[in-house]
Amino acid sequence: MSGGRIRRLVVGDAQADRVVPPSGFTAQLTLFVAAAMAFLAVFALALSLASGRLADRWADELARAATLRINAPADQRAAQTQAALTVLQQTPGVASARALTADEQAALLAPWFGAELPLDSLPVPQLIEVLETESGYDETGLRLRLQAEVPGAVLDDHSRWRKPLVDAARSLRRLGLFSILLIGGAMAGMITLAANAALAANAQVIEVLRLVGAQDSYIAHAFVRRFTLRALIGCGVGVVLGMIGVWLMPAASQEGGFLTGLGFVGWGWLMPLAIPVLGAVVAFVATSRAAKKRLGALT
């Protein structure tokens, strides 16, 4: 679209705008649909962004961490822990290995058993945090060596439970983006219907305009501008309401997990501002196509 056409679309022509009479229900329908769709799009965007953040975080944590659990009788636990640390330090691809302190282990169990857990009196296994180098270690070789030298050691590379969660978070992100596409498509469909209704209701106006020498582009512009501005205004209202809704949601917290992190972070708050522009583009394309088709059908 040329700069001149954009300028005419934005600035408009008061005289040309009056040529098509204001139409009640199509105006209200377009405004309502645009506002509702923009409202839903804000939530779909928030869901998608939050899912993306979660997937990235989980994937990052999954990437280079593992846990070695020493399930040994209390009198052998320290010796097996030391043996395991020795094995890990000798294993190529292991960047660091560190046995968690009693306080750290108690903190991990605190959400389930409370802060005053008497760890000494419980058969709690010793945990060793393992961090890999970029090249990683030979998992099968490490397991075999641990099996031989530390009988109570169980290597957990987290993938068993983290990978499905990361996959689910990524699916959720795709679902959010797909929802935005569906919302855009539904809005285009509704605006096309409204534009067609307006064009049909103004058939006589169009006939008069053509009789006095109006070109198709002039007639189409009168309708396209109207619907584009309605969509822009409707989407603007919907986005403001949607952002207020997201802002009112509980802030992200460790306890609340994923549900409380469903919002925008930092620059992410600016992303919904693109929705009214996209809505206006959708309305422009939908109305242009509808007008071109209908005017083209006239003799």
Binding site: Q15, A16, R18, V19, P21, Q204, V205, E207, V208, L209, L211, V212, G213, A214, Q215, Y218
Partner: peptide, 26 residues
């Protein structure tokens, strides 16, 4: 063209109807 039924845009006053060819001609 002067049509038998005139064919005006009823929502516009006479002056704007008369000026319609100017409007559509830009």
């Amino acid at each position: 063209v002067v049509h038998q039924d005139c064919r005006f845009l009823d929502h516009l006053p006479v002056k704007e109807n008369i000026a319609l060819p100017l409007t559509v001609a830009g």
